[in-house]
């Protein structure tokens, strides 16, 4: 039996961490309630790993505070209430997979049954092999097992599916779903929008050490996952294009216009109906990096005090 959880989940307040002149985490506020599955989404260098280090007590904040179930991270870790799967980290040698996972289990006050963990992570198939004889994907499954066996109230995973093939990735998320259903609070970092969308209740979008957006997956997806329509179209005022249904922004590049769309299907139909002369049509997903770039640019303009009205999109 797990002891009763204090009601507070994870609380980050004005959390800051600098590495030399670089502000890796630049004052973030975040509250995660127990039982939630939250994705930290952002490009490389967004500050996701540093945030995770601070949550696990691997780094100490330069400002602000972080508490995990009402305790400082180091304390929560010492009591086995938190388990982490770090982005880097290889397995120690001269042990079999089973022995290594059993060793991890022995470190926690109320571990999950070993057999169950090996089964769920798919490590049962090679449980009696030495850790040095594993493929990259197998080793990743073992690293997941090491975190899972803790049966901690909070599971923190830093880019857990990097280096996994499609099948392993699917297995991984199937296992994660089971864990989350059991009431475990899960926080994972990823730079795949699809993963964040499919598996998190909530997405926290980070860039440059700041939180740019925080909300239900569908909202964030609409914000960064939009599509772009490009068309050759002369002499139509941009303002008119912006008023088309499904269009959230318009720009002109010579003869061509580029429309940023919240709903590209709707926008495309409206565009063709209103301007049959439009040609060379092209619809593509606005890449995540591109979407981030826009959000960051928007964030910078806001931060530098430029009035929002002049920040044309």
């Amino acid at each position: 039996m797990r002891p009763a959880e204090p009601r507070h989940g994870i609380v980050l307040e004005q959390l800051r961490k600098c590495y030399g002149p670089v502000e890796a985490v630049a004052g973030i506020d975040l509250v995660v309630t127990p039982g939630e599955t939250v994705a930290l989404l952002g490009p490389n260098g967004a500050g996701k790993s540093t945030t995770i280090d601070l949550l696990l007590g691997l780094a100490t904040p330069d400002g602000g505070a972080v508490t995990v179930f009402g305790q400082p991270p180091a304390r929560a870790v010492a009591e086995g209430r938190v388990a982490g799967m770090l982005q880097t980290g290889q397995l120690i040698d001269h042990l079999t997979v089973r022995e290594l996972v059993a060793l991890a289990a022995s470190l926690y006050p109320h571990p999950r049954p070993l057999g169950e963990v090996l089964e769920v992570t798919g490590a049962a198939a090679f449980a009696d092999q030495r850790t040095t004889k594993l493929s990259g994907g197998q080793a990743q499954r073992v690293r997941f097992a090491l975190a899972l066996v803790a049966d901690a109230a909070l599971l923190v995973l830093d880019e857990p599916t990097v280096a996994l093939d499609v099948e392993a990735r699917r297995d991984f998320w199937a296992a994660m779903r089971r864990v989350a259903r059991g009431g475990t609070t899960v926080l994972f970092a990823t730079h795949y929008l699809e993963e964040a969308d499919a598996y998190a209740d909530r997405i926290v979008l980070m860039a440059h050490g700041r939180i740019l957006a925080d909300g239900p997956a569908t909202d964030i997806k609409a914000r960064v996952g939009g599509r772009r329509i490009r068309a050759t179209l002369d002499a139509v005022p941009l303002d008119e294009l912006r008023r088309l249904p499904g269009v959230s922004g318009a720009e002109r590049h010579g003869d061509a216009v580029a429309l940023t769309c919240a709903d590209s299907d709707l926008a495309l139909r409206a565009l063709l109906a209103a301007y049959p002369a439009a040609r060379d049509l092209e619809v593509r997903g606005a890449g995540l990096e591109e979407a981030f770039f826009e959000l960051v640019a928007e964030d910078d303009r806001t931060a530098s005090g430029a009035p929002k009205a002049t920040a044309h999109r």
Binding site: L56, G57, L58, V77, A78, E79, G80, V82, A83, G84, L86, T88, G89, Q90, L91, I92, A104, L107, Y108, P109, L146, A150
Partner: peptide, 13 residues
């Protein structure tokens, strides 16, 4: 290997 760092996320003293 990163094992020491991994251990620091566990209750092992």
């Amino acid at each position: 290997l990163g094992w020491v760092r991994q251990l620091r996320t566990t209750p092992l003293r």
